[in-house]
Measured scan of single mutants.
Amino acid sequence: MDSLVVLVLCLSCLLLLSLWRQSSGRGKLPPGPTPLPVIGNILQIGIKDISKSLTNLSKVYGPVFTLYFGLKPIVVLHGYEAVKEALIDLGEEFSGRGIFPLAERANRGFGIVFSNGKKWKEIRRFSLMTLRNFGMGKRSIEDRVQEEARCLVEELRKTKASPCDPTFILGCAPCNVICSIIFHKRFDYKDQQFLNLMEKLNENIKILSSPWIQICNNFSPIIDYFPGTHNKLLKNVAFMKSYILEKVKEHQESMDMNNPQDFIDCFLMKMEKEKHNQPSEFTIESLENTAVDLFGAGTETTSTTLRYALLLLLKHPEVTAKVQEEIERVIGRNRSPCMQDRSHMPYTDAVVHEVQRYIDLLPTSLPHAVTCDIKFRNYLIPKGTTILISLTSVLHDNKEFPNPEMFDPHHFLDEGGNFKKSKYFMPFSAGKRICVGEALAGMELFLFLTSILQNFNLKSLVDPKNLDTTPVVNGFASVPPFYQLCFIPV
């Protein structure tokens, strides 16, 4: 009986604490739906499609509103004006990374994606500088992407125009580009180590996009005490870190300090320079996690976009025909596509942009946080508050993009057929937390897609009208449904 009384008292205290925290903070924060004790607004949000729920709530509470995930307040920004004001106009104040408990377990605050403060700034600055020195957006990395595009075309030829699921092959190409940047090595598509790495990356994007992960991140005790797919994700990350550590040891034994070959060499050189400046942010643990982040951000996002792009091109054969006509006119058949071609191919450029806009790969991006107490639109948001960005509300804005739910390359073309930029184009987020590999991803999408369409016609196994382009999961990332196609050599 005594234990029951204690339990009831504990629960009562928890409920009172929950109510007090919510009521004391709500006077400062933007308005929002009334949260339930302990669980907050979790029942009012469709976990399978958070973005749709945010759109519905914005119609009631406006472009800036507050939700509670458990006891934790989260300020939501919906629509271009609110997102721009926060991420661009007040970029420094909104540059923090929001709480992501599962990532905390995986990387302990290291790396480039989930770190904060001085650690994040130094690692991000170093990573950007190193990638630029190796030619991100310049010639040397373009050579690597072109080489991988040629290998991709050869792998597709091996399908002999038979029906195939493109998931694996389209994942190999961007993964190999990242391998060449980090390890100075590309792998054969049949290499077992490479296959294991690909498998872990593919599993992780599916797990991260599941409703279960949303629950884990908002009720963090689940991570330590409950079984579930989150444990598989943590094991996959541990596998990748151990693999990278092996490569780091190989580099330490063979590195030429006067001739760095890749990202690992550059990081080890930085560690050597910083060894007298303790404590340094440049450690082996930081290198492991930064490399894992580059793999995660640079492989599955690009391969998922490529997979979605081919599905949309199957669905819209008239678009595919126009792209192939432009390829034939500008590039021809006797040389590989290059980035200089893009400025002469406005329709193809528009298609690449429209694919990214339409699929809305990361509907709410990753959570941000404010780095200080900030007054925002007459609300006071306390330091450390998590900020949720609705990228969907920007990419699918119906004023900027008429009929935003329709796939239409003319969203990025003017009346004369010239490519038209849009400030609403934010597939990689915006501001200080914009994806480090934005330029690389854009290069890969253009070169891989043009190389495929230069060499193959795409054949659907069903009537294009019957192809479903609805994402199968739409949590962290929008993942396309399973499909097969035939690559018919031109």
Results as ranks from 00 to 15, higher is better:
61 Y>R: 01
30 P>G: 01
133 N>S: 14
126 F>T: 05
341 D>T: 02
452 I>L: 05
7 L>T: 10
227 P>F: 10
2 D>N: 07
464 P>V: 13
445 L>I: 04
229 T>R: 10
80 Y>S: 05
57 L>V: 13
313 L>N: 02
209 S>T: 15
366 L>A: 08
249 K>G: 07
313 L>S: 03
182 I>N: 01
357 R>V: 00
384 G>K: 05
32 G>V: 00
199 E>W: 07
439 A>E: 15
109 G>E: 10
108 R>F: 14
276 H>K: 11
376 F>S: 02
377 R>M: 06
104 E>G: 13
234 L>Y: 06
223 I>G: 07
163 P>A: 15
416 G>R: 15
476 F>T: 09
375 K>C: 03
5 V>K: 01
106 A>D: 09
299 T>V: 13
437 G>Y: 08
338 C>N: 11
228 G>W: 09
131 L>G: 05
86 A>G: 10
437 G>R: 03
22 Q>R: 15
292 V>A: 11
316 H>I: 02
434 I>D: 15
208 L>A: 11
423 K>S: 13
444 E>G: 03
372 C>P: 00
39 I>K: 01
309 A>D: 00
288 E>Y: 15
189 Y>F: 05
98 G>E: 11
106 A>H: 05
299 T>P: 02
93 E>R: 04
71 L>V: 13
139 R>V: 13
138 K>T: 10
281 E>L: 12
469 T>K: 01
49 D>H: 11
111 G>N: 07
47 I>L: 15
125 R>Y: 15
363 P>Q: 06
323 V>L: 07
116 N>L: 03
263 F>N: 02
324 Q>C: 09
105 R>S: 07
425 F>D: 10
229 T>G: 13
482 F>Y: 07
274 E>D: 09
469 T>L: 11
154 E>F: 05
119 K>V: 08
45 I>E: 01
104 E>F: 07
17 L>Y: 14
388 L>A: 06
137 G>D: 15
312 L>S: 02
418 N>V: 08
443 M>Q: 11
157 R>L: 14
390 S>V: 08
341 D>Q: 02
350 A>D: 00
264 I>H: 03
92 E>F: 05
247 K>T: 10
382 P>V: 04
291 A>Q: 01
489 P>M: 00
115 S>T: 10
85 E>C: 06
190 K>L: 07
235 K>Y: 06
441 A>M: 05
263 F>T: 04
132 R>S: 14
466 N>Q: 09
470 T>G: 09
238 A>L: 08
285 E>T: 11
319 V>G: 00
337 P>D: 01
151 C>N: 07
206 K>G: 10
398 N>P: 13
380 L>D: 15
278 Q>V: 09
250 E>T: 07
69 F>G: 06
260 P>D: 13
146 Q>S: 11
206 K>H: 03
57 L>F: 14
464 P>F: 09
471 P>D: 02
223 I>C: 08
122 E>L: 07
12 S>L: 12
72 K>E: 11
257 M>I: 10
441 A>D: 03
419 F>T: 03
91 G>A: 11
472 V>L: 13
198 M>N: 08
441 A>W: 04
125 R>E: 10
232 K>D: 12
218 N>W: 09
276 H>Y: 07
219 F>A: 04
321 A>F: 09
305 T>K: 02
9 L>F: 08
392 T>Q: 09
